[in-house]
């Protein structure tokens, strides 16, 4: 067996190289590709777009206060948010009756083929789109954790690990829609610790407003947010295209 076979049987060399090149860049948050692998090589959605980047924090000190205090029972909620990258998913009554065990599994394993297989799974288009979108989001944006809720409030993706936080975030987002007080961009930002915030995006579809919550260290630029929205729309249009 030669060295190429050693590698290619176990991992995706293109994906690895892309990750490695991103790590070598000086500014990690500007490394989101303008088009990405989840949609396949023929994906056209992001052509010509500039890279995502984050805005500098308003005030950065050399010794910022501890966003996550020493372990104590009181500090658990904040820490559970940042535990978002944890692989395990807690039992959650919010998930009952939710179709996407298979969808969630597909989301966790990012590969173009899985998008194809989920398309043929008979799932309605919105769950498929949210799954594909979430997959892209987690792999290609500088977020620490994310959750995605469908218009019925069911959690499609949760690596934040705080059901309570997700419910509050969704309620805030829906209230802002109802009262017309949301930002023009449909974006809410909630600071959850000294250098952590959740950016809550409303994602419109004919089924209603889905909600994506992104835990980030620094605010995303409007350009980055626009790119994220476009990726959702692309996922939506592709998932509803017959025969795909």
């Amino acid at each position: 067996m030669n060295e190429n076979e050693v590698v290619s049987q176990w991992l995706d060399p293109d994906e690895v190289r892309s990750l490695a090149e991103g790590l070598l860049a000086k500014n990690p948050v500007s490394q989101i590709p303008s088009h990405e692998s989840v949609f396949g090589k023929d994906f056209e959605g992001f052509d010509g777009e500039s890279n995502l980047s984050t805005q500098p924090l308003q005030s950065v000190t050399s010794e910022p206060a501890n966003p996550f205090p020493q372990a104590s029972p009181k500090s658990k909620p904040a820490r559970s948010v940042v535990d978002g990258i944890k692989q395990s998913v807690r039992p959650d009554p919010f998930r009952e009756g939710q179709p996407p065990v298979a969808l969630t599994a597909a989301v966790k394993q990012a590969a173009p083929l899985e998008v194809v297989s989920s398309r043929s799974s008979g799932l309605p288009s919105l769950p498929r789109a949210l799954g594909t979108f979430s997959n892209w989001l987690k792999k290609q944006t500088p977020i620490l954790a994310a959750f995605v809720c469908d218009p019925k409030g069911e959690i499609v993706v949760d690596d934040v690990g705080s059901e309570k936080l997700i419910k509050v975030a969704r309620s805030l987002a829906l209230a802002s829609v109802t009262m017309g007080e949301g930002a023009p961009s449909g974006l809410l930002q909630v600071e959850i610790a000294k250098d952590r915030m959740i950016e809550i995006l409303q994602l419109e579809s004919k089924e209603g407003h889905s909600i994506a919550g992104l835990v980030v260290a620094r605010p995303l630029t409007s350009e980055a947010l626009a790119t994220i929205r476009r990726s959702f729309k692309t996922a939506l249009s592709r998932s509803s295209t017959p025969g795909e």
Partner: peptide
């Protein structure tokens, strides 16, 4: 203070 299975930050970064 070693913590198993915690997220990207364990709560000791300030210290």
């Amino acid at each position: 203070a070693y913590e198993f299975g915690s997220g990207p930050i364990s709560g000791n970064i300030h210290r």
